[in-house]
């Protein structure tokens, strides 16, 4: 029997727009319940003639196929998907829409407003705000995606193994996640990152993975424990499956949905966390181009030259919102019960 000392099974709702950091997200539902709901939903909604209604000619649909169908019809997914696609494209090839150099600045034009060819105006150092905003997307997307991948990888492997094998390792891991949850993110960032001199994104990503993995580990642990108790895992065991086969083929595909949902929503918060750390001066440092750095630099001039703050802040808000919307849409598709 799983100990009821964690909230992974209980808290189902994932809050949409969150603040900064891990605390903003409630873990999402349990693997088994989801799968059942999905299969039931599929049977009820799409095959009016009952489970046999598809007949021999019916095209087989998988869980993921169903989720993809749901997603394609969801306007929230389409809007957020387009925004994210755009962000990814400009972070790969920023010169497509911004021909200037974000580091080429002319002090004589400092704080000037919108000009022809420079629609967002100039910042305090006389750099083009439009170019910097476009180039800032690369940092944000890199940080968000890499952190999420790192967190999802470490978290789901450690949490999944702990959930599957249980016992002493599980207890140890659970206590370790408790310790990490106790570290305030911003305070931890100020302490850890203030000693880092590197100007690349990697220390920031490393720090966020370090503090972020326990969140995914908890969810992965919870959903593996739920999936493990399914009869089909027992049945696979009764038919001679090995531990690794049970884990990889029967448990993991049924436990991964909540991890994907939480990781997608968390991606947005990692981006805003990077901006927060950069704003505080411990995240990225110039000459890196980051919305957080620009917001920080602009904040002193907000009354004289608000455009310097509004453009990077607006880009940040839209980006974070897009990822959180995507996470919501994915959750809806994978867990129709919550609708």
């Amino acid at each position: 029997m799983p100990e009821p000392d964690f909230d992974e099974g209980a808290a189902i709702s994932a809050t949409g727009a969150g603040g900064v950091g891990q605390g903003a997200i409630a873990p999402t539902g349990t693997g088994a319940a989801m799968d059942l709901a999905i299969s039931e939903g599929a049977t009820l909604e799409r095959t009016p003639g009952g489970p046999e209604g598809t007949g021999p000619a019916g095209k087989p649909r998988s869980l993921w196929g169903d989720a993809w169908r749901d997603l394609r019809r969801n306007p929230v997914f389409i809007v957020s998907g387009l925004i994210i696609l755009f962000l990814v494209v400009i972070s790969l090839w920023p010169s497509l829409i911004a021909s200037g150099n974000p580091l080429k600045c002319d002090l004589s034009k400092a704080q000037l407003g919108s000009r022809p060819g420079h629609p967002f105006g100039y910042d305090g150092q006389g750099c083009d705000v439009y170019t910097r905003t476009v180039y800032g997307a690369r940092t944000s997307v890199t940080v968000g995606v890499c952190t999420t991948l790192g967190v999802a990888l470490f978290g789901s492997v450690l949490g999944g193994l702990a959930g599957f094998f249980g016992g002493g390792w599980d207890a140890l891991l659970s206590r370790i996640t408790d310790i990490f949850f106790g570290i305030p993110v911003v305070l931890g960032g100020l302490v850890f990152l203030s000693v880092v001199t590197s100007t690349t994104v990697w220390p920031v990503i490393g720090f966020m993975v370090l503090l972020g993995w326990p969140q995914i580990a908890r969810i992965a642990r919870g959903s593996v424990i739920t999936a493990k108790q399914n009869d089909y895992v027992q049945a696979a065991r009764a038919l001679g499956a090995t531990n690794s086969r049970m884990l990889l083929r029967h448990i993991a595909p049924n436990a991964v949905a909540p991890v994907i949902v939480v990781a997608t929503i968390a991606l947005g918060t990692y981006i805003s966390l990077e901006a927060t750390l950069s704003y505080l001066g411990v995240g990225l440092k110039p000459p890196s181009v980051s919305w957080g750095i620009d917001i920080s630099a602009a904040s002193q001039y907000i009354r004289n030259a608000p455009h310097m703050l509004l453009w990077p802040a607006g880009a940040l808000a839209v980006t974070v919102l897009a990822f959180i919307m995507l996470g919501d849409a994915v959750r809806d598709a994978l867990d129709p019960k919550l609708r």
Partner: peptide, 29 residues
Amino acid sequence: RGSGMAMIFQDALSSLNPVLSVGAQLGEM
């Protein structure tokens, strides 16, 4: 297990993995 002795469970819906096709599960044996 599986080759010498095998077991049939009560509820076939919950005893079959929802994300794998039945062919994949039969072939797994």
